[in-house]
Amino acid sequence: MGRASVSFRLIAAFVTLTATIAFAVPKAGANDAFADARASMVDKIEDIAGAVGPVDGRDRIDGEVLAAMRRVPRHLFVPDELTGLAYADRPLPIGYSQTISQPYIVALMTDLLDLESGDVVLELGTGSGYQAAVLGELVSRAFTIEIVPGLAEQAAARLAQLGYENIAVREGDGYYGWPEHAPFDAIIVTAAASHVPPPLVQQLKPGGRMIIPVGTRFSVQHLLLVEKEADGPVRTRQLLPVRFVPLTGGH
């Protein structure tokens, strides 16, 4: 056994160790191979936000939301064969008839929830777990429910591996929310819904916000924002991910 061979082993061991550490705590740092891709994804989000004009009176995505998306390794939330497209400006299929939303839509929906760091949020429709991870970066606790067993298992394992200890994944029917941890400061429903489940409205804190994307898996037509005012009544607002000014031309 020669010296070269020993040093090669040492290097190999070092590389393996570093890689292991990096893989175990990607949440902590963005200095992995995809950091650049992630940064340009966030730039793209800002470009789109600029092009579509103000949504709900805000003309940019909150810096904290963008920072969170700069940290979450989206490439680990897509099927292996699509890793190369993970940061592209598009929704991607993740199997089980589900998709991971277009980054801009994730940013917009997260932004519209007006999150604070101490918030507790509920998500219906975990999917790959990407949206939950973004929420996990921003709030104190996130609870997420997925009805498709395969997806729920994958997402739970993925989020645990990435060290998101503040995210709890449950497999099952989300219609009745998660009463043990209610009320929630914010709720996001990414599963298809013909109506807003009344139990979810009940589990929303007064002053809280619920967001529901409306459309198809690959194309969000508009966003439904449900606001529960402090004094009780529930109102909704329908927000376009794009803005026509004005809808009737002219002016």
């Binding site: 936000a49 092009a51 579509v52 004009g53 194309s219 037509q221 991910p241 794009v242």
Partner: peptide, 13 residues
């Protein structure tokens, strides 16, 4: 044209 001008944000419509 207007929708395309909004980049991928406008594709949805």
């Amino acid at each position: 044209g207007e929708l395309l001008g909004m980049g991928s944000g406008g594709l949805h419509l």
